[in-house]
Simulated scan of single mutants.
Amino acid sequence: MNPLLSDIPLQLETERLILRAPLQTGDEEIVHQAIRDSFCELKAWLSLFQELPTVEETEILLKNAHINFLKRESFRYLIFDKGGGKDFIGTTSLHGIDWDIPKCETGYWINTKYSGNGYMTEAVKELANFGLNHLAFKRIEIRCESRNFKSQFIPEKLGFEFEGTLRNEALSADGSKLTDTCIYSKVN
């Protein structure tokens, strides 16, 4: 089946969270504020956030994410607290999709003020289950820098299998040195 015909919901729910595609007016403001609030942590791990983006640049990122969602190239969801109404927690995505296998990678970042509450673990669990069960992906990977212990905790907690460490595999977020990448996976 052509991936464009795949039925992909614009919203997923867990016990505490709503995961929804970034397409509503005002999303750029709340995401931009979360990036500002979490900039030091994001800058350490993500090359995308070496400079604080403007609101307009954040809007472009979200619009491109929506375009990629529609093209079935990646599925980024914004994470909100169900009980708190508009509390934006972070993002998680299925990306690097290879529909021939089919497989993908999962990525995520959290607004620092919500870290340590299990929200991201809950969101990634829901998205991985969606990928494995609804989309019938045969493999979902999580890759993270070997020094990013908070990020590694999520696949370990969710029962992803640690497959190994790729040494000198990537550049650090700031591009200043080589880093090692840990690979975790779940297979169907």
Rank of each mutant, 00 (worst) to 15 (best):
N188C: 09
A128C: 08
R76S: 09
F153T: 10
E169R: 13
N168H: 11
D174G: 13
D37L: 06
N133Q: 14
P22M: 14
L166D: 00
D174L: 11
T181Y: 10
F80S: 04
N111V: 05
E141Y: 08
D81W: 07
Q152Y: 07
R72V: 05
W109Y: 05
P3R: 08
E126T: 08
N129H: 13
K138A: 12
A173T: 10
N133Y: 14
F69W: 00
T106I: 14
N133R: 15
S115I: 11
K138F: 10
S151F: 01
T58G: 03
Y77R: 01
L23K: 11
I89Q: 02
F39I: 12
K82T: 05
I97S: 01
H95T: 04
H134W: 13
N117L: 13
L12D: 01
N133M: 10
L158G: 04
I101G: 13
L158S: 07
C182V: 07
R76K: 12
E122Y: 01
I8V: 10
F80K: 05
L70D: 09
S115F: 05
G159Q: 06
E13Q: 11
G26D: 06
T25G: 15
E29A: 15
G107A: 09
G118M: 05
A34W: 04
M120R: 01
T92C: 05
I101P: 10
C40G: 15
G175V: 14
G131W: 00
K150N: 14
D100L: 15
T165E: 15
Y108V: 08
R76L: 10
T121Q: 09
I67H: 15
Q11H: 08
T181G: 05
N64W: 09
R36D: 14
E145G: 08
